[in-house]
Design a protein around this nucleic acid. Structure first.
Length: 442
RNA sequence: GGAGAGGUCGCAUAGAGGUCUAGUGCGACGGUUUGCUAAACCGUUGAGUUGGGUAACCGGCUCCGAGGGUUCGAAUCCCUCCCUCUCCGCCA
């Protein structure tokens, strides 16, 4: 992920302000500009010398073909000259490599500026742009309450899951480790039903192409989406084979088109992919990690879009609405949060979070994050499109969004649909694959 | 995992140290001819980077899977790695 060096030259002040708004140090911008200047100087000198060497080598070839003795005096003089130029070329190439590496490193540390109009500030500056559904209270009046109080207290999802025999966290810890949940019985079936529902929704109704990606990627792919070097500690590594377990389907799916030029007629390309997601979550143990809300392995259906630059803003709204449809069909109340400059992260230009209401714990749980990267990610992966047949290729825009992540959706679903008698009603879209309208304690 | 073959301009193929500024065919695009279609003929045909110019445009350099090496000069020779195909072994 990086801003382009050309854009850095042309829009220096906007990029500088963007870095400041995101709370990053703008000093790297001036360093990068200096490195770029040096780089161009060195490249220019090197090119001139290479042109000279090419000319001399050509003279040698012409002379030999013209009958000159290959080991004669004339040829020897030309060889000596070319050789001397070669030495200077080697020195310039070494410097060019050094300065380009430095420039690349600096560019990587310049954040993607947020779109105009994004609220500036930290977490507190993010704004709720809309809410859908009724955020149920934890306690409601209920004549048949089990404790005879006349009030019914909704339970947190881990209690519901335990009563229904859906999770077996202890067994998961034994088999793999803490944070690797085992889903059992109705819990396992619910996972499968949700994955199928999301995929069917996004393919059949939203026209996306389904992808079933690898669960591991090579280093180039991990670099392409910026997991390396930005989030290297977040990934599980299979060092022996040089592979990384995917932290999200975004990584394998976006890399599908790495180093490609896509004809305009093929755009937009919109994929939806299920994958397991593996995250080390180093240092996250403790707060808010109870149950299945933050785990090392979870399941997610991810949407990935490749768009024409002039259509990506609209695509972000569309993509957000597609994720919202999933929650609406499940009847889960949620709110949409527009992330502020300081809240959205290094790589995004604009980002919405979808937060589902979980009445048992009385929390809004982040179940989806939908982002427009504009050309930031695509430049790193060298994904281009051709605006007109025969025209020069340009970097396209990428977006992605969860549609949705399972664990927190399950939590919100269980807490929303729990009944005073301990059972859980099944939302209509899942009834078919679960084969029941109600989950009952086991 | 073992043995062999191979990776060249969208596709197919030539290329074996200087004549490769990578040829040819197909495709695509433009044009001529044409009642329509087809065909024929002519022409064009990649990417990156950098310099000049307001610009259309013009020039330099780099790129023949990737990275090193030999050489005045590498698609071509040498080394390492990656990928694809065939056969064998193993296996859900």
């Amino acid at each position: 992920m990086s801003v382009g060096v050309q854009r850095l030259r042309e829009e220096t002040e906007r990029i500088r302000q963007g870095a400041i708004d995101k709370g990053e140090d703008p000093a790297v911008i001036d360093e990068a500009l200096a490195a770029d200047l040096r780089r161009r100087t060195v490249l220019g000198e090197g090119d001139t010398l290479r042109a000279e060497r090419n000319a001399v080598s050509k003279q040698i070839g012409d002379a030999i073909r013209g009958g000159a003795a290959p080991d004669g005096v004339e040829i020897a003089k030309l060889r000596a000259r070319s050789s001397a130029v070669g030495t200077r070329i080697a020195a310039l190439e070494a410097e060019a490599a050094e300065v380009e590496a430095r420039l690349d490193d600096l560019l990587l540390r310049i954040p993607n500026p947020a779109d105009p109009g994004i609220p500036v500030g930290g977490e507190e500056a993010s704004v709720i742009v809309r809410t859908w559904g009724e955020a149920l209270p934890r306690a409601t009046a209920h004549a048949g309450a089990l404790d005879g109080s006349g009030r019914w207290q909704r339970r947190p999802h881990w209690e519901i899951g335990e009563a229904l025999g859906m999770f077996d966290l202890a067994a998961g810890a034994k088999v793999a480790g803490s944070g690797f949940p085992i889903y059992r019985g109705q819990g396992a079936a619910l996972q499968r039903a949700l994955i199928d529902f999301f995929l069917a929704l996004h393919t059949r109704e939203h026209g996306m192409t389904e992808i079933w990606p690898p669960a591991m990627v090579n280093e180039a792919s991990a670099r392409g989406t910026g997991q390396i070097p930005d989030k290297e500690d977040q990934m599980y590594v299979v060092a022996r084979d040089g592979l990384y377990l995917v932290p999200t389907a975004e990584v394998p799916v976006t890399n599908i088109h790495r180093d490609e030029i896509i004809e305009s007629a093929r755009l937009p390309i919109r994929y939806v992919a299920y994958s397991p997601c593996f995250r080390r979550e180093a240092g996250a143990a403790g707060r808010e990690t109870r149950g299945i809300l933050r785990v090392h392995q979870f399941d997610k259906v991810e949407m990935v879009c490749f768009e024409r630059p002039d259509e990506s803003s609209e695509a972000l709204e569309w993509l957000t609405a597609r994720a919202e449809v999933a929650l609406q069909r499940l009847g889960i109340a949620y709110r949409v949060k527009l992330m502020s400059t300081g809240d959205m992260g290094f790589t995004q230009a604009k980002k919405y979070d979808l937060e589902a209401w979980a009445p048992g714990v009385e929390q809004w749980l982040e179940v989806s994050s939908i982002s427009n990267f504009r050309d930031f990610q695509a430049r790193r992966m060298n994904i281009r499109w051709r605006p007109q047949p025969g025209a020069s290729p340009e970097i396209l825009h990428t977006l992605n969004g969860s549609g949705l992540a399972l664990p927190r959706t399950v939590a919100a679903l269980l807490e929303t649909y729990q009944q005073p008698d301990g059972s859980v009603l099944v939302p209509e879209p899942l009834q078919g694959s679960l084969g029941t309208e109600r989950l009952t304690p086991v």
